[in-house]
Design a protein around this nucleic acid. Structure first.
Length: 459
RNA sequence: GUCCCGUUCGUCUAGUCAGGUUUAGGACGCAUGGAUUUCAUCCAUGAAACAGAGGUUCGAAUCCUUUACGGGACGCCA
């Protein structure tokens, strides 16, 4: 099984889509699992639409997800170059083979592939005109995921455009031959192209590679119907990076989109993914994208992070909103993050969750506000607790706990009679990290000041 | 319109290829309750699916046929 050669062949024409990333990942996993070779080939034959920006983003996205390539841009070996725009002489020589075999013809400046079979003309509903068709023999594709698929190609197609550039179907097959690709793993949207490709392999006299067509990633129901498009939320890999999702979580999540390890394990490290990946586990039907599940997986990874790594990632999100800067005390930051870590499922929510640790200008949650003041005794509670906290010499979780308990006992109440009020007073909301540790970290001075502010504001 | 592919809880899926061990399992989400103390956390419990119809069989989520629905392709785009 070590002769496996797979390729990921994107065209850099726009932002990298989650489906593109998944195709890359599945090819990569298959190569790593089988001990084969993963080739990155850039299909940039469309000069009009290719951009350097899209290419940079693609490369960056692959690296972010931990996908490296054995052959591709930057590697020197017998199969390169890996930009199709640099392989024109190879295409020319392959085109000549077809010309010599009498399998091409020219029409309006373009070179067409000539199918074999009886020709006839017919009005085509879709094209809306009378066109020439060919009664070809059906092509059987033995797909590793969906079994035998029979399809018949009935129209000649373009190999070389009138501007001299080779077409996708042509270069795709030529390069798969030239690069000795053994398995073509790609999206189901290519399934109906495959008969064209098999026709070409046959015309060149080469055995086609094994095909495996992956199910589509569909829109989440609230975004409508059909396959996920670049405009849907969560569709772009760059978006996850910008929103400070963890790459290992994104990778884990997209691996689960259309593939299953067949047991109940969902959190899989990259090593486990490589070890367990198999085309058998790939689903046939389309998978609908679910951002809640994505967030959940991200949360699992966030919880498992060592505090140092957590602090590093969190800092990035906090800096974006200017809540922290180079002067921020790292020990203080770490202690704040430590009590937040097990509470929120994405770093992008961190600023909203924890701003009061870093700024006096934190938002007031109106729902929490009305809830806290509904009973009408909130100010009294603040007036009761303030002197108790003021008198505290040692500001630790233990002394805070004792203080609340003693006050509660004295007034024949439960400590939680004060908790929500105090929490709101010091943080502007009714939820957050564990209460006592939060007070400790905020410190006596700040807690008392905020209690005082609240008392004056709402009195 | 033509061709191809698909269809298990709202969603991701296990079970389907080798029909009986299934009161169809897990996860996300949702609901309810609990966690001396808040909570977006944790725990427990619950609601929730084999698309429909025929057939084959002692027996079908699993095999066959068919209908419906969903998806994809049909470019001198990739």
């Amino acid at each position: 099984m070590t002769n496996v050669r797979v390729r990921f062949a994107p065209s850099p024409t726009g932002s990298t889509h989650i489906g593109t990333a998944r195709t890359a990942l599945f090819n990569w996993l298959y190569a790593r699992h089988t001990g084969g070779v993963f080739v990155l080939r850039i299909e940039d034959t469309d000069k009009e639409r290719n951009t350097q920006k899209a290419l940079d983003e693609l490369i960056q996205g692959l690296k972010w997800l931990g996908i490296d390539w054995d052959e591709g841009p930057g590697t020197e070996d017998e199969y390169g170059p890996y930009f199709q725009s640099q392989r024109n002489d190879i295409y020319a020589s392959y085109l000549k083979k077809l010309e010599d075999a009498g399998r091409t013809y020219e029409k309006e400046g373009a070179i067409y592939f000539k199918l074999e079979g009886e020709r006839y003309t017919e009005f085509d509903q879709y094209v809306g005109a009378e066109i020439e068709k060919v009664k070809t023999q059906p092509v059987v594709i033995d797909d590793l995921i969906r079994g035998k698929v029979t399809r018949r190609e009935e129209r000649d197609f373009v190999l070389q455009r009138s501007n001299g550039d080779p077409s996708f179907h042509f270069v795709n097959v030529v390069d798969d031959i030239a690069m000795k690709i053994t398995h073509v793993i790609r999206g189901e949207d290519h399934l109906s192209n495959t008969s064209k490709h098999v026709e070409l392999f046959n015309a060149f006299g080469f055995e086609p590679p094994k095909f495996a067509h992956l199910p589509m990633i569909l829109k989440s129901p609230k975004d409508g119907k059909g396959k996920m498009s670049k405009r849907d939320k969560g569709a772009l890999i760059a978006e996850y990076r910008e929103r400070d999702f963890l790459p290992e979580a994104v990778r884990n999540f997209i691996a689960l989109l259309g593939w299953s390890p067949k047991d109940d394990q969902e959190v899989l490290s990259i090593a486990e993914l490589v070890e367990r990946f198999s085309l058998d586990g790939v689903q046939k039907g389309g998978a609908r994208f679910d951002e809640k599940k994505m967030a959940h997986i991200n949360f699992e990874y966030m919880k498992a992070m060592p505090i140092e790594a957590y602090t590093r990632s969190a800092s990035s999100a906090l800096r974006k909103t200017k809540l922290i800067n180079d002067d921020t005390n790292q020990d203080y930051l770490a202690s704040c993050l430590k009590i937040c870590q097990a509470k929120i499922d994405s770093f992008e929510n961190l600023p909203g969750f924890a701003s009061y640790f870093f700024s006096e200008d934190y938002p007031i949650n109106e729902k929490a506000e009305s809830k806290v003041f509904k009973k009408g005794d909130a100010i009294t509670r603040i007036q009761e607790i303030t002197p108790v906290l003021e008198s505290l010499e040692d500001w630790s979780e233990a002394t805070l706990e004792t203080a609340f308990n003693q006050l509660a006992e004295k007034l024949a109440a439960k400590p939680f009679a004060w908790f929500p009020v105090v929490r709101f007073a010091v943080s502007g909301t009714n939820s957050g990290p564990d209460f006592l540790p939060m007070l400790k970290i905020l410190g006596k001075k700040r807690v008392l000041a905020r209690l005082k502010n609240t008392e004056e504001k709402y009195a």
